[in-house]
């Protein structure tokens, strides 16, 4: 059964997009990847509306005090095995928001991360290549 799930994940990863406390830019670049110039839907990558349907989580932005518990809940709801892909420099090291009173640290303190895609925002090519690398690891 686990193998079947893994096969499905590799073949056509369904993605749920979680914006923790982002500036919107990575989120728009993620949507951009779906639009005609890149059109990742032809590879079976679909944005879904519920974490319960998702194989992978695309997280963007820094984690703050209010969004942390919600992000953890979304992670718990995602069926395992799931990939967690951090899009943008904020997910790697809090970027320039590190001195803030409301930021509760990088993601790997709270949830296991698979791939980081640095860039502010990463180019759509970088996002696609990051997802491909995450899939290759499986």
């Amino acid at each position: 059964m686990a193998n079947a799930k893994l096969w499905g994940l590799k073949k056509s990863p369904w993605v749920f997009h979680v914006a923790a406390a982002s500036c919107n830019n990575c989120d728009i670049e993620i949507l951009d990847v779906l639009t005609p110039r890149w059109d990742v839907e032809r590879f079976g990558i679909v944005l879904v509306g519920s974490p319960r349907h998702a194989d992978a989580l695309l997280v963007t932005g820094v984690l703050n005090r209010k969004s942390l518990s919600r992000v953890l809940r979304v992670y718990e709801q995602t069926p395992k095995p799931c990939l967690v892909i951090g899009v943008g420099t904020c997910t790697c090291d809090n970027h320039m928001f590190a001195p803030s009173y409301n930021v509760v640290g990088p993601y790997d303190k709270h949830i296991p991360m698979d791939v980081y895609i640095p860039g502010c925002p990463p180019k759509p090519e970088a996002i696609i290549s990051g997802v491909v690398k995450a899939l290759k690891r499986l």
């Binding site: 001195p99 803030s100 009173y101």
Partner: peptide, 14 residues
């Protein structure tokens, strides 16, 4: 709202 608060005004003063 408040899920997105990052404290820009505070960081700007540093």
């Amino acid at each position: 709202i408040g899920y997105n608060h990052r404290g820009h005004e505070f960081i700007a003063q540093k």
